[in-house]
Simulated assay, not measured.
Amino acid sequence: MRDVVLKNLRERFQSLNEIVDTLNPELFTTHLNVPKNKSVGEHMWCIVGARESYTKSLLKGEWAGFECSLASTEHRGDVIEKLRSSEAAFEAAIKDINEWTPERNELLVYLLEHEATHEAQLIRHLFALEQTLPESVKWA
């Protein structure tokens, strides 16, 4: 089962990379006129932070708290860099884990849930802004 979760996580990582790669820079700060709305950049901050935090937690074997190194949610280049570096850190961590405990498996599933939730929110946000998404995006 862990292999399926990892495969799906990698697909979500790739999908989000492709979405961000196609976005105009001004979209990173654009909000919708609805309650509790996040901009694209704010979604990216949460995604990067979750990747970094769950990676740290997976290595520790238990939840280790939330931190995010993405300082600017307004600059496309910064977001792309942090998406890629957080993905690389995750992949390195997975290779370093020798013992997969129930806690680690649970953390892995939580990260997948988080990625999928934000991807769906981001897709709806971009459709509301009448943006076109890459054909490779699974749920678009």
Rank of each mutant, 00 (worst) to 15 (best):
A116C: 09
R76H: 15
K7T: 11
N8P: 01
E91R: 06
K138D: 10
L107F: 02
E18I: 00
A89T: 04
Y110T: 05
F13E: 09
K36E: 13
D78Y: 08
E74S: 15
T73F: 02
E135Y: 00
E130A: 09
S85K: 10
A140M: 05
E42G: 08
H43T: 07
I123P: 03
E106C: 05
Q121N: 12
F127A: 13
N17S: 13
P134T: 01
E87M: 02
L129H: 12
R51P: 00
W100E: 05
L112N: 07
L112I: 02
E11I: 10
P35G: 08
G65Y: 07
S15M: 04
K7A: 12
L111G: 03
E42S: 09
L9E: 07
R10E: 15
K82S: 03
V79L: 08
K38V: 00
M1T: 08
G41H: 06
L112K: 07
K38E: 01
A93F: 01
G61L: 06
R104G: 01
A92G: 00
Q131M: 04
L32V: 07
A64W: 08
A89C: 01
L122R: 09
L129D: 04
D96M: 04
E81I: 09
Q131N: 02
V137Y: 03
D96N: 13
E62K: 15
V48P: 07
S86T: 10
H114G: 03
R51A: 05
T55D: 05
A50N: 10
S85R: 09
T29S: 13
Q14R: 14
A128L: 14
S39V: 06
M1R: 10
A89N: 13
Q14K: 15
F127R: 15
W45V: 14
E52R: 07
E135T: 09
A128P: 00
E18K: 10
A71S: 12
V20A: 06
A116V: 12
E67K: 11
R12D: 07
S86V: 04
E106N: 12
T117V: 08
D78S: 14
E91Q: 12
D96C: 06
L58E: 03
R12Q: 12
A128H: 10
E119Y: 04
E67T: 14
V5R: 06
E87N: 04
K56L: 10
E106W: 08
L23S: 03
I97V: 11
V79I: 15
K82I: 00
L27W: 07
K138E: 14
P25N: 14
S39M: 04
N105C: 08
R84W: 00
T73A: 07
L23T: 04
N105P: 00
